[in-house]
Each structure stands twice: as structure tokens, then as C-alpha cells.
Design a protein around this nucleic acid. Structure first.
Lengths: 154, 154
DNA sequence: ATCGCGAATGTTATATTATAACATAATATT
DNA sequence: AATATTATGTTATAATATAACATTCGCGAT
């Protein structure tokens, strides 16, 4: 599903990057926020808010939905996590410094959400936005289907 | 918000198109499905499932959520309506024969969802899809922000 | 050090969105 | 008419998300 060489390192890297970003921006990367981001990265794919909630319950005692949603709000607001609207799920951002918008190829078979951001797409979308004199807040591009690996299996 | 010259005609046209499409495809365009499509077009913008439910209750007696969701499933499956994932809302498709995918500019101020489909966007997205050897089921492109008209007002 | 402030978290309750499962009715097929 | 298929009705509940208010934490000013 994902192909990082060491998943533990991959999680650690993501947490480290987040730490640095929060420090640079004078944001508070609290234990709760760190824990939620860690759980998102553990899955290394879209994870649901209530699944995070369950995992938190196992590790740091019973928590309630607002706890998780607030942490997710913080993480998404700061580009550390993206929400996948078509799945009602959340996924860690691999390059939180590079760009705010992120495009995804979402496999309905294995559940992976692969980032497929590229400037060519951004450019052509921007052109349409300009032509409509629209003031953009956020771009959601989610492509669902079957990924290369899953296609191969059948 | 929308600028059809006569909104009644606009609704009637949409229903008529739907009728023809269903006939051509040997689909059953039942009273319920027609009514739901009519309510979607009455709003002429994204409408929530439970708002449709309320309006149905007023007109054809109490209905339950599955009634509405099933009609919406039929309409979306057949390209007569699109779901806007970022709003959990549904909007009528203006050109149900032209193409399956539809891109939207969604104004958070007035609530309009303007179609902004164009082949240039489709082409460049297709390129990325091919490069990833992905088998596409559906493309969601939703751009949120402020529309031209609402920007002008401020 | 402690007071006061704003930010973060805890807590209770509930709103919103959506579907499962089974019963009945309407339509099409034989 | 008998049967199969599709659509709708109905009950119940699952899944997702937020409002509102209480408490705690972190931190600068005194």
C-alpha cells in the first residue's frame, strides 16, 4: 500500500517536520496534536475521525469527538493533514511546506490516497479561476478509482 | 445568484431533459424521482438531502430519509444531479448528456455552485491519471472561495 | 510567586448526514 | 394469472460533526 522503507522512520520524520513547522510559526504542537498526527501517519492512508478517537481511547484514556476534531482542525488548518471529502477521512501531508493544495488518487480497493499534485494541473485550474474572477479559498481534487497495483492483481 | 431568464422554464427544461434521457435509457423516471429533481432545480444551487426531505413532507406527506437518498442515488448515478462533497449537498446538472464529470466553483458567500467544466482541465488531469496507470471511476474538482458577484459587493 | 489572560482541552449534549434491514406495493415478464 | 424485478414505505440506528459551557494549562505582567 505505501512503500516507505521504514514506516517508523516515516512517522518520526513527519512528526519532526511538524514540530519544526510549528516552532517556526509559533504554534503550539501539544501532546494531543502530536498524538493525533502520529495516529494519522501510523495508518499512512486516509483514517476516519472516529478511528482516531478509538485509538486515542486505547492509549491516553477516554476522549470525546470534539477532542479529535479540534486537533484535526488544527492540523488541517496548518497544512499538516488533508481532509479527503469523498471519504470523510484524513491523511497526513507529505510536503507541508511545498504547497497548500493537494490532489489525490484514491483507490477504492486498497484505500490508498496517493498525492498527485503537480503544477501543470494547478496552472490550468488557475486559468479557469482567473477567467471567472473567482477568489479561491481552497481547491479539492479527488480522483477515485483503482490504483496501478490493485489493477495488476486482478 | 443564478441568471436564467425564467426560473420556471429552467426547471421545466431540466425535468424535460431528464424525462427524455430516462426514456432513451429505459429508466423509470417515477413521480418521486421527478419531484426530487424538481426540488433540486427549484433551489438552483446546492441543496441538502434533509432540506429536500422537509420540502417533500410539505408537498406529498411525510417521507423518510431513505426515500430521498434513494432518489438522489438514482439521479446522481444517471448524471442528472451531482453531489458536492465539500458541502454534503446536491445540485442539478445542466448538461447531463455532455459529460459525466463536472467541476465547480463554490461561493461560500452566496452558496452558488457554478459549473466550470472544460476540456483543458480534463486533459491535464487525464495526463496525470495515465502517468499513474490509474483506472478512474470519478473525478471530483471543487473550488471554494468567493464568486465574482460577491467580491464586487464588498 | 501569583494574578490575569488567552489558548487548549474536557465534558455534556445534540445536530447533521447517511444507511441497514425488512415489509409492502407497483410494474414488467412469462 | 403467476412470478420476478424494481421501487417505495418503514423502523431503527450508524456515522459524522459541532454547539455550548466548564476547566485547565502556559505565559507574560505585576
Amino acid at each position: 500500500m505505501h512503500n516507505c522503507t521504514s514506516h517508523n522512520d516515516c512517522i518520526a520524520d513527519a512528526l519532526h517536520r511538524a514540530e519544526e513547522i510549528c516552532e517556526a510559526r509559533e504554534l503550539r504542537f501539544t501532546e494531543l496534536r502530536r498524538k493525533v498526527l502520529e495516529l494519522v501517519w501510523e495508518r499512512h492512508g486516509p483514517i476516519k475521525a472516529y478511528d482516531i478517537l478509538d485509538k486515542l481511547d486505547n492509549r491516553i484514556g477516554a476522549t470525546k469527538p470534539p477532542t479529535v476534531y479540534r486537533a484535526l482542525d488544527f492540523l488541517t488548518d496548518n497544512g499538516l493533514v488533508h481532509k479527503i471529502n469523498s471519504l470523510n477521512a484524513f491523511v497526513g501531508c507529505s510536503h507541508p511546506l511545498t504547497h497548500r493544495e493537494c490532489y489525490f488518487l484514491i483507490c477504492s480497493d486498497c484505500g490508498e490516497a496517493k498525492e498527485c499534485c503537480n503544477s501543470e494541473i494547478t496552472d490550468v485550474i488557475s486559468k479557469t479561476i482567473r477567467r471567472n474572477e473567482f477568489l479561491t479559498d481552497h481547491i479539492t481534487l479527488e480522483i477515485t478509482g483503482e490504483c496501478r497495483d490493485c489493477r495488476g492483481v486482478h
